[in-house]
Every structure is written in C-alpha cells, then in structure tokens.
Write a protein that binds this DNA or RNA. Structure first.
Lengths: 203, 203
DNA sequence: ATACTATGAACGATCGTTCGTTCAATATTG
DNA sequence: CAATATTGAACGAACGATCGTTCATAGTAT
C-alpha cells in the first residue's frame, strides 16, 4: 500500500479511472432504468468492464449506489458558495433560488435524486447520506435567513431552520412536478420565487 | 359477465372480496419492501391466495400497482370536501393544511405515495394517474385561492394554479422529510402553515 | 353439465454474487 | 541491471435464488 495521498503509481491511477468509469456507467443506467431495474451486468457492460472486475472495485451493487450518493455532495458546492456570500439576504435568496432551479431544470439531476431518496426510505446508510447532504444546504440557508431577520430584511419567521427547509422543499417539489408533468422548470421558477419571497420578506 | 352495476351474485361478491384481499396484501408488501423488492409470490402468500389465482384477478404485477394508485383517489375525497366548502378562503386553507398534514402524518401514506411516484417516472400510465389525482386537489385548491383573491382575503398571486401546487408540494415535501429524518409531522405543520399563510395572505 | 375459480408445478429469464484462473505491473532478490 | 517472487486487476463461467408468467388440472357453485 502506498502513501495515503492522492498521488499514486500508474497502476493506482488506472484503477481510480476504472472506478469512475463504473460509477458513471451506473449513473447512466440508474437514470435510464432505475436502480432496481438495473443489473450489475448492465453497469459492467456499459463501463466496458467485466462482471467480476466490478466486484474488485465495489463490494456490491449497493456500494455503487452509496458512492453515487456521496458524489452528489459535490454538486452542492456552488450553492453553498452563493449562500455564504455576504450580500443582503433577499438578494442572496433570489440568487440561490435561481441557481438551484437551474440545477433542477436538468431532469437527470431530479431523477437521480428521486432514485436515491427512494432507496433511502429502506436503507438507513443512504438515508443518512441524504439527510447530511440536505443539512449542508439548510445550514447555510438558515444563516442567511437569520441574518436577514436581524437586518430587518426578512420577516421574523417562527423557526428559521424549518423555513429554510421549506424553501428547499418547494424548489425540489416543483422540480419533481416539472419532470412528471413535463413542464419545463423555467416556467415554474417565477412562481416559486414569488411564493418564497412573499412568505419571507418583511411586510 | 353480469350487469355493470355493483350488485352481484354470491359468486361475484366472493371474487370481489378476493381482489380486495390481494390489493391490501400488495399494499402491505409494497410498504414494507418496496415495489421492486416485492415478488408476486409475496403478495399471493400474504393475501392467502395461490400464485396462479392472482393472475385470474389481475393481468400481472404492474396491474396491481395501477389499481392501488387508482385507489388513492378515494383518500383525497375528504380534502376535496373541505376545499369545496364556502367558508372564507383563509379559513379553508388552514383547515385543509391541518387535515392534509394529519393524513401525511401516517408514514404509510407517504411511503406508498413515494413508491408510486417513483414508478411514475418511467411508467406513463402510472404517471398519468398520479397527475390526475394531483389535479383533483389542485383544481379545488385553485378555486379557493381565486375566491380568496376576489374577496380581498388573499394576495393577488401571479398564478393561482402554480401557487396551489406549491402549497401541496410544501406539505408533501415536509411529510417526506418527516419520514426520512424521523421527525413527527406534527412538529412541522406549524411552520408549514406559517410559511404558506404568510405567502398567501394579503399584506 | 357448464362455467367459473383455485391450485401449484414448471418455464425461461435474470438476479447479485462467488470462484478459479490468467496476466501484467510492481517489489524483492541476486 | 537482470532474474525472480508477489501482488491484485481483469476476466467470464458458474451458482443458487428468485423473478413474472403460463398452464394443465382439480374443485365448486350454478
């Protein structure tokens, strides 16, 4: 075993690449056919990897999903960056809503999240990942809301944490509806912003 | 085939009963293990019916899910009744939020809906059922909102239909979070009502 | 006698996983 | 540096289990 650092021999780099190949293939499969409708063979074939070799890189099918769920964390970074800036709260809120809506406008993001959350109901380790990912967003959002209240920009909501979660839920709920009903997310984002801002702005 | 009416011979009644047995067993299985993790044998065994006989009552596994999704329509009736009363809009809204939240406080209702909606992503007939069920609720809600605006009780939201859908999405999103994070829905409903009413009431 | 429901064995397909093996890259010798 | 030993990635056949569905047969109410 080499040093724990990310630098590695040619061999280690190659295996890291294989892992990513498999993960990406798995994402494609899960998107197209869903987690349970996807066989391990489908993933291996799509990744250009033998069936047995997949088990050299992952302990099993479940493990693949877990790693994908962990990868989603990375997607949240741009939104955290927006939320952690120090513009006035209402401005940040609007910017966040726009950015997150743009992210959710891609059906693959919505479907993958639904696929993962659907598994989370019965698999505690995935549920925990999901809640943790969500917490990163809400924690940042709650700071914005609190600051907005302190500055007199936002209404003094009874519970800033729950209000923040509701903001995110409205966005994701709309995104899910946009997928199911075939309505482009761009047509929904206006009403979402109106709904949220009307609820949170001082009156 | 007898008359299309609901009255039937003793025999017809018995088979109708069997159908319900199977459907109820299927619901239990889907709740416990999810749709794809549930085998036809599981359903048959739980219903106390032979494997082959299940296929005398349903064309297949998919058909069972479709019928369950159709049954959900019935659950919406109490809420439609609330929404169709003619009290002042804000009063109706609060009553609806309370009632729907109580319904969603039962995890089985949330999980079953998630299970169905998760299938809906890739199965158009289920998606249509889902959208139709949802439409019944939003259509009734949109009347309330419009009336509330006309009466000067509610803010003149830019799009009453989308505002209505957002109200429902906030409720269902919270319910889903309550299941995943293990927070009782009763702890969330206060913030939900505050969030929604603050957004919709005249200012 | 007729028209049903009810049964469970059987089917072919596919599932996730394990296994023994091959082989190229690395580490350890001389 | 050359020769050898060790490692672990890659492979695909094979496993046992389970999948959804069909079917020939038996039972039963009309």
């Amino acid at each position: 075993m080499s040093e724990d650092g990310k630098a590695g021999s040619a061999r280690e780099k190659a295996t890291a690449k294989r892992r990513n190949q498999i993960l990406e293939a798995a994402v494609m499969c899960f998107l197209e056919n869903g987690y349970h409708q996807t066989g391990v063979r489908d993933i291996a074939a799509r990744a250009g990897v033998s069936l047995g070799n997949l088990y050299n890189h992952f302990r099993g099918k479940h493990d693949v999903l877990v790693e994908i769920a962990m990868f989603e964390r990375r997607d949240m970074e741009p939104f955290l960056k927006i939320l952690n800036s120090n513009s006035p709260a209402p401005k940040i809120l609007k910017k966040f809503i726009g950015a997150y809506a743009r992210y959710l406008a891609a059906p693959e993001n919505v479907i993958l999240a639904l696929e993962i959350s659907s598994e989370a109901v019965r698999q505690p380790d995935i549920a925990q990942l999901f809640v943790e990912n969500r917490a990163m967003l809400t924690d940042a959002l709650v700071s914005v809301v609190k600051r907005g209240i302190a500055d007199g920009d936002l209404r003094a909501v009874p519970d800033p944490l729950q209000a923040s979660q509701l903001v995110i839920e409205v966005l994701e709920g709309s995104a899910y509806r946009s997928v199911l009903a075939g309505i482009p997310m761009s047509k929904l984002v206006g009403s979402v912003e109106d709904f949220v801002m009307s609820s949170l702005l001082v009156r």
